[in-house]
Design a protein around this nucleic acid. Structure first.
Length: 428
DNA sequence: CTTCTCACG
DNA sequence: ACGTACGTGAGAAGG
């Protein structure tokens, strides 16, 4: 199934995308309606609570909100940054740091965060309401070449950003529970199940492929070990069994940072958040230097991706998908730095997009060859969702795993996580 | 039309 | 002195 160029790939993918768009996905409308009602009631309660501090405020207006909090109520800002209008920002991060400092004193901050969350969830309700009257299903647009890197985008409605919160069994957070209901609204047709299959750490596996770093290659060939724990054990020079949860989180932050081109400044912020103690960018740089000394092939690989893009003016995936990076030729340092991050990230993100696109074609062909009725309904970057008649579940489990894991052959195995269930939430 | 905010991978 | 992690879509506000 491997393609020599992405034009051929996209050409063969077109009918798969068309079929997904036309087929659509079923939504549990009665539960959607009840979810919407609950959220509207909650919003009214929260609005009443906020009205104690200020009636007539439009909570959706950042400008009005900033003036209320930092001018009228004289709350101490936790940042020196200001928006272009000279006001203190009211984004979630800033509000959350206020909530910590002013516990009890300014209940309003917590209520505002709640209000915002409810508003955002209600928007998801309204977009899921656009059921097609003829098919009785919800149809999105999958924009096949919708991104700079080769990924799809999804629009009208966007079904690639449906809430997917991680949630503890014993949580009592009412809003979090409501938020976790959204993927339950996506249900299979009568007589069918869903099968969800997502690639496990595909971008880091691609980093292993590009870098040929012996540690990453080995880490991914022994399939069941947690890559972040292994990385932590190398960085902190500890046996795997002695790696703490905090050390694993730091390693995870570094691993993700590789893919995005994280700077020491960004890592320092992560370190402070993870350990709950302040860390300077010098601390972070020390850890990064250490990491790149230990994994010098990774360092060479990232540098190589930058010089390639510098030389040719574009970056390229493992299957030849190109992205122009004019930023590297900018006169401004800041833009050139951005260009370097794009040069590191685009081949990795783009190669992952190539792989899942090839897998979509492979799955569709295999289903057709076996005369099965199963259908692909959604793609969310590294995840595929299939609607499967109940009598095809066993054969489809095998088929999907086989096609997705062997669609291309890299130096490390590809692995998917696969689940069967009665709604989207259950299969993720 | 731009900015801000917030949802996803 | 500046900004600081990649890729998206969408709605509200404000001009």
């Amino acid at each position: 199934m491997e393609f020599n160029n992405t034009l051929e790939l996209e050409h063969n993918l077109l009918p798969v995308v068309l079929q997904m768009e036309l087929f659509g996905v079923q939504i549990d409308e009665p539960i959607l309606k009840s979810l919407e009602q609950q959220l509207k009631l909650l919003r009214q309660n929260v609005y009443d609570n906020i009205s104690i501090y200020s009636n007539e405020i439009n909570i959706n207006s950042g400008e009005q909100l900033s003036k209320l909090l930092f001018e009228e109520l004289q709350i101490e800002p936790q940042t020196n940054k200001k928006t272009k209008k000279g006001l203190y920002p009211v984004d979630k991060n800033h509000l959350e740091s206020l909530k910590g400092k002013h516990q009890g004193k300014h209940q309003i901050v917590a209520e505002i965060l709640k209000y915002r969350k409810i508003e955002s969830l209600l928007k998801f309700c309204s977009k899921l309401n656009n059921i097609n009257p003829i098919t009785k299903r919800l149809h999105t647009n999958f924009n096949q070449n919708g991104t700079a890197t080769g990924r799809f985008s999804s629009s009208k409605p966007n079904l690639q950003n449906i809430p997917n919160p991680t949630i503890k069994e014993d949580t009592t957070d009412e809003l979090l529970i409501l938020e976790s209901q959204f993927r339950k609204l996506f249900i299979p047709a009568k007589g069918c199940c869903f099968i969800g299959a997502d690639y496990s750490q595909i971008e880091l596996r691609i980093t292993a492929e590009y870098s040929q770093d012996p540690f990453l290659l080995k880490a991914y060939s022994q399939n069941n070990t947690d890559i972040h724990i292994l990385t932590a054990s190398e960085i902190f020079k500890l046996p795997v069994s002695q790696v703490t949860d905090e050390q694993r989180k730091i390693a995870k932050s570094i691993n993700f940072g590789l893919i995005y081109g994280k700077t020491e400044f960004g890592l320092a912020e992560d370190l402070s958040r993870i350990t709950d103690k302040p860390h300077t960018k010098e601390d972070a740089l020390a850890i990064m230097t250490d990491y790149f000394n230990r994994f010098d092939k990774v360092k060479q690989c990232l540098d190589g991706l930058i010089s390639f893009a510098d030389k040719y003016g574009y970056s390229q995936t493992l299957w030849g998908r190109k992205r122009p990076i004019p930023e590297l030729a900018s006169n401004e340092l800041r833009i050139r730095e951005k260009g370097k991050r794009l040069a590191m990230n685009s081949p990795i993100q783009g190669s992952a997009a190539d792989i899942i696109k090839m897998a979509m074609i492979a799955c569709k062909n295999a289903v057709k060859n076996k005369n099965l009725k199963s259908r692909l309904v959604l793609q969310v970057h590294d995840e595929l969702l299939f609607e499967v008649p109940k009598n095809e579940v066993e054969i489809m489990k095998q088929l999907i795993r086989e096609e997705m894991e062997s669609v291309v052959s890299l130096s490390v195995p590809l692995k998917i996580d696969l689940k069967v269930g009665r709604n989207w939430r259950e299969v993720h």
